[in-house]
Simulated scan of single mutants.
Amino acid sequence: MGDNADAPKGVLLFLTGGPGQPGVPFVERLSKVLAPVLEDYRLVMIDQRGTGGNALRCPGLQEQMGSSDLTPPTSQAVRDCAAAIGPDRRFYGTNDTVADLELLRRALGVRKMTLDGVSYGTYTAERYALAHPRHVARLVLDSVVPQTGYDPMDLAAMRAAPRVLRAACESIGCRTDPAADLAEVVDTYGNGVDVLDALTTWEFVDPDYAEMIDALHEAANGNPGHLRGLIEGVRQGSAATAEELSQGLHASTLCLDGRYPWGRSDTAVAGRREALEKAGAELTPADYGPFDAATATGLGSMLSCLDWPRTPVPPLPNEHRRLPAVPVLLLGGDRDLSTPLEWLYDQKKLTPRARVVVVKGAAHSVQSRAASDEGRQAVFEFLLRL
């Protein structure tokens, strides 16, 4: 927490992502990123419940998924995790985090806060603004998850992949069609889950996707070894401890918050798989683009909750209610597959005072990861203007 308690523009609460990522370990790094505004704002960060030093620990699920949203876990790892957390797993939804943030505001003794969220942190910020509109001064939403919620089939990302890969290809002057190669690879090898998982992680390695584009082209022409090596490398590189990103908290929150083909987490486990298979059978190429229905129904974001035990769920807010009419900056990178730009524009429809900044060549988490300063400068100007 910043020391400038009397900052003229008040509290800037920075919300990290996941769900499952802590906040406090990033104070030093974010203080440097946000240095131009910290004479005016008091930076506050928090380890949301179930993260950091108090992380929910599920060794099997943690080992299988690491820091990924999409790597498929085994049913046993999911059941073991839920059993380890026990009945308390019903207390880790976003509504609980929102209530914690309101307690934090009261403890800080401030009437309003400015919230800056990244990825899942944008969803938390939106939910806080919907629940406590009078206590929000302005919002920065970076790499936007819309308030309508996360799609466990990740269809927007699948449809966005051709756009993202072709833009990346153009920027590096490649002479292939990575979108056509991607479609051929998924059709030939049936590895859509692995490929989408790898692509979504690769944006953190290289938002130009250069080596991935080469590997897709080789695989499309009958030589999948390079691609398989990249997929395996991504899996190994995604290893993370529960303190770094708790998969136990990740599953607990997504399963409580989410809407699935079978309903919510209070739906009986028996019958869920049948409902999932039915939903998959109803998908068309217009839904999943160069991927396939098996990708949509086989991602970790879906399977983490397919076998999650029946759990009482909280009521969800009216997700189509517009955000309060405070200034909001919607920030995204055009290479982002984790939270594709299509989600940003979905949120814009529900944001009365939205300003949109899209940074070309940037992927996920624009403020801290983009090579260009365009997004950061937009944040500074937005936060400092009257």
Rank of each mutant, 00 (worst) to 15 (best):
M1C: 06
N4H: 06
G10H: 01
G20E: 08
Q21A: 06
P25Y: 06
P25M: 09
V37T: 02
V37C: 13
G60W: 03
L61R: 06
T71C: 04
A82S: 04
A84L: 13
Y92H: 12
T94W: 13
L103Q: 15
A107C: 00
R111E: 11
T114D: 11
A125L: 04
R127T: 02
R166S: 09
R166Y: 07
E170L: 15
T176Q: 02
D177H: 09
Y189E: 13
T201K: 00
E203L: 14
I213A: 11
D214E: 13
A215L: 09
E218H: 14
L227P: 09
L230N: 11
G233C: 01
R235Q: 15
Q236V: 10
A251S: 10
D257K: 12
R259Q: 02
D266E: 09
F291S: 01
A296Y: 12
G298S: 03
S301C: 04
L303P: 00
L303W: 03
C305V: 05
W308I: 01
P309S: 04
V326M: 05
G333L: 12
P340G: 04
E342K: 12
Y345V: 09
K348L: 10
G361W: 06
Q367E: 14
R369A: 04
F380D: 10
E381G: 09
F382N: 05
L383P: 10
